[in-house]
Design a protein around this nucleic acid. Structure first.
Lengths: 343, 343
DNA sequence: GTGAAAGCGCTAACAT
DNA sequence: ATGTTAGCGCTTTCAC
């Protein structure tokens, strides 16, 4: 069984491969009757277009490479789904790779992705990524848009959310409820969202005249486990907080859980605000008050911005910050003085 | 700025492209000194291997196409992460596409994926997929392994979990706690996991001599929303259940939530068992008793089975069912007669 | 409206 | 140890 290529269709039909190629792409220049015959035979023989071959010729692959640090975090899974959807709608397929927070693995992965010659890339970089880490990519001039996390000093399209503003919303809400000792749980300085959210925290407190207490900040990656550990540490403090804003929902879930281990409950005798608004946030008990970061829109926008740049590489660079939205639910409550309940 | 290919390296160094090609792949046949020079110049010029070109020649792409119905469900996101990890470790990159439960979109997607000439495919098919839907793939002979959901009547590698056994474990557990009116929440007959889990439900009840009550089955896709709706319907029954096993964790979360809307609580006055054991299951309140389906192993195994078949296409077909494991946590409790509490 | 021919960048025989 | 040559399957001028 010989593999079926344009060649064999051309020969069987006694036309040229050029004609077959045109016919299969439904070119108006080919006679309707010829098109018809070609297309029928192609279907009959089970012809499958070979994109590698076409790419070699056209220098277009219709692939978008997506490099994410983590797709196990529901937030990024949701963003990825949106990217995939938008890309597919535009006729492009996703080439996917992940690297955790490893710069070394990220470097390897980015190189490999590049070898496939995607038409563009969408990246959410690993923590600690510097301008230099992206140098090969930058030099290659491949259309590139950064998503969620941005790298300092590079002139690239970027779509993320206004993280500082988002945390600001959370602080305003908590202060409005009477809280003044507010912890910041998780987030790190090694990636932009961590920095921005910390900034939002600091500025938010300042705006309300609340002095910053470094003891109330618990830097760590935003995971369930770290959220749990942080809340425990926070409540062990001599002068513990009465509320916390968390770097992301995962950390918030962990924190709410940790609270429970200590016989406390978010929304009753402690207040927790998350960040992201993943699908399960609304379903938790108590339902999580959190900052919505619009993963659908972020993914879709990233795909569209990339598409625009592929179409027109000379475009000025865009940096879009999605407006966050506070979703007030049940994990926050007015401050009430805790009665001393030491058994 | 002319693009750098083997050709230009060859010319600058006054050697042949064959030598350059060999040298870059670190072939032992090339003189060490030559290799050295070639590799240095390549690095200097920022040469990037062109896999499209290589693929055309070698008929290998080192891509694995992954077609999933949904990556927004944390279960599949976790499986995907495991697949990606294993594939990357074996030097392959993931080409990703999703299609929800749409057969029409699935058909398009599968065709597109095939055009990229991946070395193999890993598929979790859309609900309702029949043998005929996979016919083009089957005919093409591309290495293919099915994951989680299997299609009746096709002779393909498959890795999933022993879903019937898993639900059996859940039923045993609930019956052991004294429950006899046990609902089955979500799951549909249009995909194999739905069928298998329903079978596990029926057989589990039968094994304990409990008659099957069709009114206690609530077929639907396994989503949070459907789980919530189902539990409400279940509790509105004249003779309501005292426990439920859910098609998956998402449905279980929805059900626990629905319970709460009705003033009830899983693990106290109702028992809920999930299926999958996604990351948040252990963190829920109450922590979800659920059947662990080992997404890590499933993803890894799928990648490995596919790799084996790529290496040796003649291999006999394998069908592996992972042994499920019941994780007993806090959402289940001994049956106690409800005091009539109608206000 | 269709065909001939060249070439995208690489690898694999085969020759030297 | 290195070079020559052909060709993977497609698209694109350019002729006719």
């Amino acid at each position: 069984m010989t593999r079926v290529t344009l060649q064999v269709i051309a020969e069987t039909l006694a036309v040229s491969t050029a004609t077959v190629s045109l016919a299969l792409r439904d070119s108006p220049v080919v006679a309707a009757e010829t098109k018809e015959r070609v297309q029928r035979l192609a279907a009959e023989l089970g012809y499958v277009y070979n994109r590698s071959a076409a790419s070699l010729r056209t220098a277009r692959t219709n692939m978008v490479a997506v490099g994410f640090h983590d797709i196990t975090n529901p937030y990024f899974a949701e963003v990825l789904a949106a990217v995939e959807d938008a890309a597919m709608a535009a006729g492009r397929t996703i080439l996917l790779a992940t690297y955790g927070e490893s710069l070394e693995r990220q470097a390897r992965v980015l190189r490999t992705l590049r070898e496939y010659r995607p038409d563009g890339m969408i990246l959410c970089v690993a923590a600690g990524t510097q301008k230099e880490d992206l140098a090969p990519l930058l030099a290659s001039g491949i259309p590139l848009t950064q998503l969620s996390r941005e790298t300092a000093g590079v002139d690239l399209d970027f779509v993320g959310s206004d993280d500082a503003a988002g945390v600001g919303l959370a602080i305003d809400h908590l202060v409005g409820l009477g809280h003044r000792r507010i912890a910041m749980i998780c987030g790190m300085d090694s990636y932009s969202t961590g920095r921005a959210r910390r900034r939002g925290y600091c500025e938010g407190l300042a705006a309300h005249g609340i002095p910053l207490d470094p003891a109330l900040m618990f830097p760590a990656y935003g995971t369930r486990e770290n959220g749990l550990a942080a809340i425990q540490a926070a409540l062990a403090l001599p002068d513990p907080p009465t509320a916390a804003v968390c770097f992301n929902d995962l950390a918030a879930f962990g924190a709410m859980n940790g609270l429970r281990h200590l016989g406390r409950e978010a929304g009753r005798d402690f207040s927790i605000v998350g960040c992201d608004d993943v699908a399960e946030a609304a379903q938790w008990f108590p339902a999580l008050t959190t900052v919505r970061n619009r993963q659908d829109e972020m993914g879709r926008l990233a795909a569209q911005m990339l598409a625009a740049r592929i179409r027109e590489p000379g475009l000025p660079t865009r940096r879009v910050l999605l407006e966050p939205l506070l979703m007030v639910r049940a994990s926050t409550a007015p401050l009430r003085e805790r009665r001393v309940a030491t058994a």
